[in-house]
Design a protein around this nucleic acid. Structure first.
Lengths: 190, 190
DNA sequence: GCTAACCTGTGATAATCGTCACATAATTAC
DNA sequence: GTAATTATGTGACGATTATCACAGGTTAGC
């Protein structure tokens, strides 16, 4: 839990008492590669703090897998819409490697947040980071071409390029696998 | 302030006392058409609850305006990254019509949130809605073609289609103005 | 080690899109 | 009302991309 505590302290002031109050909401869980953290049609009742490994969010449309996000160590993965509203999730979250996560249970978390304002603040900050990340990647498509989007990842998220295969990255960047391969080749020649 | 209070009650439990404590953080402000709510390079210290009118977020890159978001009545506009981190904003927010907004001042809001957990919870819920919206529009690009993205707006956000001109909508949908005009024409023939 | 599954590269071709140019509304300012 | 500005439609053409097909390389499981 050390990593999580560090993560929390990087976000907000957090007393030992808050940490204690938070404990009932936390549960460590290991996932195998290709094991689902959240399945389409289920309600998302957890925030997944990723301790080790990485996962992705994906839609399955007409039998085709469309990756919409990748989440790595010291990030929180969730379906924020489903988590917040209680509606069913329209997408899946799956482990891309053996993964260790600490789950924040929604009900217990809300319970704890009522007792300690610091926990409520922590929740707000987690969601804020999540929103910032969504905004960042959303804007990529409005501001840049496919080639520039790849370049952006190379500069700003090199870890993603290193760990995610070209095929997986393609739908995330909104292009066909073959196109991404050709873009990468063209970029290397320049 | 009636609209705002309704909005708040739709999000969370909110006592009269919380509403009173929140007052010092609120300020009503009118903007003319084409007046900036937030300017690139400034730090965003407000959440803008939109009472009447609408605004957009846009980047200016190489002299070209790229619209990244539109915000209408009963929504909150802000630069969540700048607001949360205190860093300078990389984009502008501008009124597209005469606009009335209620500004949440960051400093005062945080002060109030320390005194009332309900206000902290409200903040979390506002950000959650914001994150959901970002996620929704971000995924459009990964899941759908340009034509399908237009169709999605027609079905799910008809108000946006009605109020935002084709030229303005184009960069938001990630296509050239001329392309959007042709897509619309093709769709009408079917 | 061997097989099967997955990943990457590449050619051909059709579809889509961006850009430039210009014409015609529609709106705004005075 | 008139002029100026802005918004939209459209043709032409080059650039980019999706799709299908297939080959070779890499990885993982047994």
């Amino acid at each position: 839990m050390d990593n999580l505590l560090k993560y929390i302290h990087s976000l907000t002031v957090f007393s030992d008492k808050s940490w204690e109050l938070l404990q009932p909401a936390l549960a460590k869980k290991a996932f195998q590669k290709n094991e689902l953290l959240l399945k389409e049609g289920e309600v998302c009742n957890s925030l997944f703090y990723i301790e080790k490994g990485y996962c992705k969010t994906y839609y399955e449309i007409d039998g085709m897998v469309k990756n919409t996000g990748f989440f790595f160590e010291n990030e929180i993965a969730t379906n924020i819409t489903s988590f917040g509203s209680g509606r069913k999730s329209e997408f899946n979250i799956i482990a891309c490697e053996p993964l260790t996560a600490i789950l924040f249970d929604k009900k217990e978390l809300f319970q704890a947040a009522k007792q300690a304002n610091e926990i409520e603040t922590l929740g707000r900050n987690c969601i804020r980071l999540f929103a910032s990340k969504q905004e960042e990647f959303s804007n990529l498509f409005k501001l840049y071409s496919a080639r520039e989007r790849l370049q952006y990842l190379e500069v700003n998220h090199p870890g993603m390029i290193q760990r995610v295969s070209l095929s997986q990255l393609a739908s995330f960047l909104g292009v066909a696998r073959e196109t991404l391969s050709r873009i990468r080749k063209r970029r290397m020649l320049m």
